[in-house]
Design a protein around this nucleic acid. Sequence first.
DNA 1: TAGTGGTCTAGACCACTCA
DNA 2: GAGTGGTCTAGACCACTAG
Lengths: 230, 230
Amino acid sequence: MKQTTHHDVREAIRARIVSGEWGLGERIPDENAFAEQYGCARTTVNRAIRALADEGIVERKRKGGTRVRPMPLRQAQLTIPIVREQVEASGRRYDHRIVRREPRTPDSDAIGRMGLSAGGKLWWLETIHLADGRPFALEQRWVNPAVVPGFADADLSGISANEWLVRTVPFSTGTVALSAVAADGDRAGLLQVAEGDALFAMERTTWLDEQAVTTMTLYYPADFRWEFSL
Amino acid sequence: MKQTTHHDVREAIRARIVSGEWGLGERIPDENAFAEQYGCARTTVNRAIRALADEGIVERKRKGGTRVRPMPLRQAQLTIPIVREQVEASGRRYDHRIVRREPRTPDSDAIGRMGLSAGGKLWWLETIHLADGRPFALEQRWVNPAVVPGFADADLSGISANEWLVRTVPFSTGTVALSAVAADGDRAGLLQVAEGDALFAMERTTWLDEQAVTTMTLYYPADFRWEFSL
DNA sequence: TAGTGGTCTAGACCACTCA
DNA sequence: GAGTGGTCTAGACCACTAG
C-alpha cells in the first residue's frame, strides 16, 4: 500500500487550482481539511502547500488561511552562466585570451559599484572569450587585491579569472544587472563588431562579508540570446 | 527554553561551509551527527540541509552523503517584472497607450516562437508604456485567438494586455529570452530614441497546455537596468 | 480570542547507491 | 549489504492575525 506523498498532494491541489475550482484571491481549504480528504498527515499537506507557496501559486498567512495568488508571480530560477559552459553547450570549442592585466586606478563607476572609499589601485583584467576561435564575449573586470591577495600570482592560462575566483572565494553573495549598451571603439574592436552596435551587458559584483571582491561586465554581441523558462 | 529551529541549523551549517571547514566537493557529516551536535531531531536537520541543497550550496545523494558543491551554482530567483510596477516603484506615474491593435498575419519569427502550423491571423498589439508621460518601454505582442477567444472584445483601457491575459489565463507556463537589439525606425520613433540605438529586449512566450497563448517582446531604451541579487 | 499555519519530536520504513 | 537521505505519522505547542 503506497502512502500519499507530499508530491501527490501538491500536484492534486495544483490541478484543482489550475482547473479554476477556486478563483484568484479566493481562500482554499485549510491543512486539516486536505489531510482528511487525501488521507494523510497534516505535516504532509503542509509541505505540499508550502511548495506551492514557494512557487508563487498561493500565499499563506496564519489565521488568514491560504489563498490563490490574485496576480500570480512569474518567477524563474535563473542560473548565472559560465561562459565556457555556454560555448561548449553549443558544440563549439572554448578558448580565452587575456588582453590586459594590470594594476589600475578604478574609475568612478567601479568605485561606486564596489563601494570603495580610499583611492588604491585594483587589478584590471580584460578577457576575450572565444568560440571556435571567434569572439563570443568580452569580459572587463576589476579585482580587489585587499580581499584576494593571491590574485596577483594566479595562473590564468588554464582557467578563466571567473573560475579562479569562484574556486578561491567560493561562497560569496552578489548582485547582477542586465542592460543593453552601444559598443564603444575598444569593445567593438575586441568583439569584431561595428562601433555603435548593440551589446548585451551582464554586470556582476561579488561580495564577501561586506567587502567587494570583484566587479565584472560581460558583453555579448547582438546575436546572443539568453533563454530560460518559467 | 527555545528549541533549535531548522533555520538555526541551516545558518550554522552554512557558516561552517563558508568558513571553509569542509573543502569544495568534500563530504559533510550525516544528518544524525548534526542532530546530535545541535540537540534536535533528524527531521529538523533534514529540512535545514535540504534548503541548502535547494540553494545550490550542497548536493545530496542517498548513501553518498552530502557534499559541498565543487562549483557552487550561482542561482537567482528572478521575478518577471510587470511594467506598471516597475514604473511606480521608481516613483513615477504609469500610463500606457495602445498604438496598434489589429488582426494580422504573423511573421515567420512569431510562427516559430509559437509553434504554429496553419496560416490563420493572430491579434497584433503594440503598446507604449509611459512613465510621467515619457516613453518607458515598447511592447509588441501576438495573441492567439484560438486560445483566448475573449481577447477580441477585451477592454484594455484600464489595464494592460499583459494584466488582462494574466487574469484570464492565470496559470500558464512560459519561456523567456533576453537580448540586445538595435532600434529599427518604428521602434525608435515610438520610444523617442535614435535609430540604431541599443535596446534591451525581453521576449516572453506563454503556453497553456502545449498551445501558445501569446508571445511578446518588451523593448527598453539603453538607460534601463534590470537588477537583482544572488 | 480563536483559527490557521509554522515547526519540533520520536520513531518508523523505504529507496537509492556506494563499496 | 549496509549506510545515507527521503518521507510519513501522530501528537504537540507556538506565533501570528483576522474578525
